[in-house]
Design a protein around this nucleic acid. Structure first.
Lengths: 219, 219
DNA sequence: ACAAAAGTGTTTCGTATACACCCATGA
DNA sequence: TCATGGGTGTATACGAAACACTTTTGT
């Protein structure tokens, strides 16, 4: 008995649930299955862990190398053991959020990648389905007690767009006046002074996030 | 580029932040440093991960093998990479909660183990200090939105004892009447009909947890 | 009779919710 | 002038917080 933890060898990788919102839908970025493999299942981007790299770095690197996406919000989610499937594989899952505009700039439209509606996913590899479900749950929970929603917003945005982000994640409509009251009370957005003309109706004020890189707990 | 995640080899172990409450103090169980090692630092109980064992099992086994404690609440906390210290070590951290009475029954008083007050800890190994801090934060947060506090309660308990658990974790006094209202409204405890005489004052009603094994989200 | 913890309700306050109309623009 | 989404305030309901005295026992 005694004597502390003795390390073992196991296969460890990070996996990233990359989410964005486009056309009022949560979208997930998946990597196309290798045509040579038997199981033709899409997989989450990720990386094996290499020397002297911490877990956050590994997840960021996996995402960058496989998708070109970098510099966005990443949060560790949970660590899974692929019990039966892949032998002795441990997956440290992360989720990543970004505004869709930013992703187009990073040109993520290769033959090997595809965005899927979160509720129209193909068959996924191993634990990936459970990972995606947990990411969505965590995200929805965090809306209530953090400023995480701003991670989906571009530089400037309208309050209607912000509300739409909340509604998309929560899958329920919100009251416009109460939503705006809440957002102003948060004191996390500021008026840019600009407006945006959109159609044959009154233009919308544009706001910007005060602390775009911080995700803070609220209340 | 492409082709999904290729597993790497790394040292993976689980570590358990075993907490209980004794004499209105949060207490942490640590394993005495091996006299042969250079760094004389106490460490968290844990285990290396072995074949065909999932992470929860590994944490439970590590705790059982090193401390004799089994069958209690365990929750995955976070996964840490020991960046600099131990080479290529990954630690999947868990926290465990149990009523102190139960732990005495399991006879955890060997020369190799010791309970420490949470705010009087010795120097810890590697990331263990950060792990313990995170466990305490998570626990305090969960008091607000789950029934996790009941994991510290024995078979039967008084409302004053239950309140003391909340106060110990939150490090702040609570209003007795409001606390009792809240607990009854939860509908998670039931009156046993028994009372307990304690000193030269009115005896206290004894309650029992309705679902002692479940930790549920509330509100 | 007194000390000491157990037990119990009501009022107050602040926040969340429900709800409907006018505004600015393009066609 | 009409259609369209943008923008605004108030009244109500509900839950959280503050607060003090009576009860039951042992000595």
């Amino acid at each position: 008995m005694h004597a502390g933890r003795i390390p073992s060898n196991a296969s460890v990788s990070t996996a990233v649930v990359m989410l964005t919102i486009r056309a009022q839908k949560l979208q997930l970025l998946l990597v196309r299955p290798d045509p040579d493999t038997v199981t033709q299942q899409w997989i989450l981007p990720g990386a094996r862990i290499v020397d002297d790299e911490d877990l956050d770095e590994s997840a960021a690197r996996g995402l960058r190398e496989q998708t070109g996406i970098a510099g966005i919000y990443l949060e560790q989610l949970y660590t899974f053991r692929r019990a039966r499937s892949v032998p002795r594989m441990i997956t440290v899952a992360y989720f990543a959020l970004a505004p869709s505009a930013r992703l187009q700039r990073d040109a993520v439209a290769t033959r090997e990648l595809h965005w899927f509606d979160l509720d129209g996913l193909p068959a996924l590899h191993g634990d990936d389905e459970a990972i995606v479900t947990m990411a969505h749950e965590r995200l929805a929970a965090k809306l209530d007690y953090s400023t995480i929603a701003f991670q989906f917003m571009p530089e400037t945005f309208t309050l209607t767009e912000l509300q739409s982000v909340y509604e998309t994640i929560l899958r329920e409509p919100l009251d416009k006046r109460n939503f705006r009251k809440r957002m102003h009370a948060l004191r996390r957005i500021e008026d840019t002074g600009e407006t945006r003309r959109n159609g044959s109706h009154r233009p919308a004020r544009l706001y910007r996030s005060r602390y775009p890189d911080r995700v803070e707990f609220i209340k």
